[in-house]
Design a protein around this nucleic acid. Structure first.
Lengths: 125, 125
DNA sequence: ATTCTTAGTATCTAAAAAAATACTACTACT
DNA sequence: AGTAGTAGTATTTTTTTAGATACTAAGAAT
């Protein structure tokens, strides 16, 4: 019986957090959507459409539904005409903010050293 | 001219860190691979194959090449038979460790509350 | 001589994700 | 009467991503 800690099959067999994380925030748009909702306080469908350059309506709808089903977003429907829907972070979604923050800070520094985030102060609210 | 900070087209047009991050760590296996290399010190192709339950050889090769091209991994070829190749984090890759750590900590707590990471201490090296 | 080992490559196929397109509802405004 | 506005749905097509399968090299062990 090896003492090598890397041979423990249980590690693989059991719930693997990173794997779950990938399945939850993977895809082309999720972290971007969360980022907008979390830091830029973007709440409405149309606003998100304009921000997420190149996304289609149906894709955005699907992503938002998934984020809602995974517990990150709350979707509030206003019974108005024209229709109004507001998206906001749930408590669970807010727990994810530090992760987004770490991601953003790293990306700014290492992926986009030339990029100056004009709303940096918002992130420290 | 609106003073609304959300109308600034430059924000969209310029390099968007989160978008880049997504394109770099997106996909089904990348953060998992990085996590294994970073924390479990898994370095060899075969070992990664065994860890990444369900991945195929060609997919793993492709992912590793992309991580190498994106600057995260260093690939060292030993001129031996049978072939030996070792993967390790570059300096750039190591700069990403805090992000992985934040991700992992959050996922453990919020996605897998029942999961007890048996190698938690490794993460605080 | 045959088999095992590792780390692949090459090609093809399947599945998943995203995009394109067309359509809806209800009201206000022109 | 026609158009704009918002937030969608439904369906099909395209693109992207990952998987399946077959194959290779070169020495070591049996």
């Amino acid at each position: 019986m090896s003492e090598n800690k890397f041979t423990d099959k249980n590690v693989i067999a059991r719930c693997v957090p990173m794997s779950k994380l990938q399945s939850v925030i993977g895809g082309k748009w999720k972290i971007l959507i969360l980022w907008y909702v979390a830091f830029y306080k973007v709440q409405r469908f149309g606003e998100l459409m304009r921000r997420l350059d190149g996304i289609t309506q149906s894709t955005l709808t699907k992503q938002l539904r998934e984020l809602e089903n995974d517990g990150f977003l709350h979707r509030e429907i206003f019974k108005e005409i024209p229709p109004k829907v507001e998206y906001s972070l749930t408590e669970f979604g807010e727990s994810f903010i530090p992760v987004l923050q770490t991601m953003m800070t790293w990306s700014e520094k290492y992926l986009c050293p030339d990029y100056v985030n004009p709303y940096k102060e918002i992130m420290n609210e």
